[in-house]
Computed example of a mutant assay.
Amino acid sequence: MHRGTSDLATSSTYSGPRARSQKAGGWGEWEEQAGLCTSATPLNPAQAPADQPELAATSTSFAFKRLGLGAEPREVRAEPWAAVFLGKILSGSTRMSRMRRGDGRSWISHNFPFGHHKALWNRWFGIFTNLPFGIPFSISYKMYHIDHHRYLGAVGIDVDAPSDFEGWFFCTTYRKLLWLVFQPFFLLLRPYFINPKPVTNLETINIVAQITFNIIVYYVFGIKSLVYMMAASLLGLGLNPISGHFIADHYMFLKGQDTNSYYGPLNFFMFNGGYHNEHHDFPNIPGSRLPQVRKIAAEYYDELPHHTSWGKVLYDFMMDNTMSPYSRIKRPRKGNEVLSQ
């Protein structure tokens, strides 16, 4: 289990900044054993439980609405630019954030919609549900996300961990706010600087399909709908309460505890995406069953610190001067890693 090394790790909740020795200006600490907090369960399809059909149904419904088969794109086309930015984009960003995490990328990358025995179906489904975002990332996200599970925090492998530049520069309240707002750009660009991979055929299909779809949106619905679609996606991945999971999941609010779960009401909308300790321990178990994992292993998970508000996570991260993008554990590579392709 992802048990922290802090003497505060027996606290049941994280309720705000506490006395801690972690300071901004250097990576949290180097783990001597790189596998300490990596997945305890191999990504073995034969061990996977049943599919998660409700995930596929919800994602499909969301995608169809955003693809123009609902009223939303037409409403945006008729709105003045001010209304598009002040109303539609802000409301759409929350739905985009939910799609990205709760019933979208993470679970699809684990083959939950159709199961491991239909892995390619999940890749096609990921490309399809990627279309409303306007930015092609479904296929590449899957590759990097599996590396994240296998080599959590490993230098030059896990692109979920910020770069040295991010840790050095975004160290004040206002700079951290700026970093959170533009976090989508760092998430999308970071892999190409830290751990570039050869472009695969599926990635090419993902890119071509997305560009084609964007052109269709532009000609059918107009520039406002295209701007709305892409801006809502970026804001939904940035300064948005649901996107607080980007910080809550692996940032050290308590020294030594770099994987944290969230047990709050937003899990209802996120297919239990907040059960992050449980997810890393058992990545083959669908989100719908992670509460059962916590219940079965209560003696482990109930002792670990956890969050109850993603919004508060964002606020504490910005206002606490001991927190920065450096507040992550980074682990040295051992040299025998097998990366996803």
Results as ranks from 00 to 15, higher is better:
Leu8Ile: 00
Gly16Trp: 04
Glu29Val: 13
Glu29Cys: 04
Gln33Ile: 06
Thr38Glu: 15
Thr41Ser: 15
Thr41Tyr: 07
Ala46Arg: 15
Ala50Thr: 11
Asp51His: 03
Ala57Trp: 07
Thr60Asp: 02
Ser61Ile: 13
Ser61Phe: 11
Leu67Gly: 12
Leu69Val: 03
Glu75Ser: 06
Val76Lys: 07
Arg77Phe: 00
Ala82Val: 06
Ser97Asp: 01
Arg98Lys: 04
Arg101His: 09
Asp103Ile: 11
His110Ala: 02
Pro113Arg: 03
His116Asn: 09
Ala119Thr: 10
Leu120Thr: 14
Trp121Ile: 01
Asn122Ala: 01
Arg123Ser: 07
Gly126Ser: 04
Phe128Met: 05
Thr129Gln: 03
Gly134Leu: 03
Tyr151His: 01
Gly153Ala: 00
Gly156Met: 01
Pro162Thr: 08
Trp168Val: 00
Tyr174Gly: 04
Phe185Gln: 01
Phe186Tyr: 15
Val199Gln: 07
Ile207Ser: 00
Val217Gly: 02
Tyr218Ala: 14
Tyr219Asn: 11
Val220Gly: 03
Ser225Ala: 15
Leu239Ser: 09
Ile242Gly: 09
Gly244Gln: 07
Gln257Thr: 15
Pro265Phe: 11
Phe269Asp: 03
Gly273Val: 01
Asn277Cys: 14
Gly287Pro: 10
Arg289Ser: 11
Pro291Arg: 12
Arg294Thr: 14
Leu314Ser: 10
Asp316Ile: 02
Arg333Ile: 12
Lys334Thr: 15
Asn336Glu: 13
Val338Asp: 14
Leu339Gly: 06
Gln341Met: 13
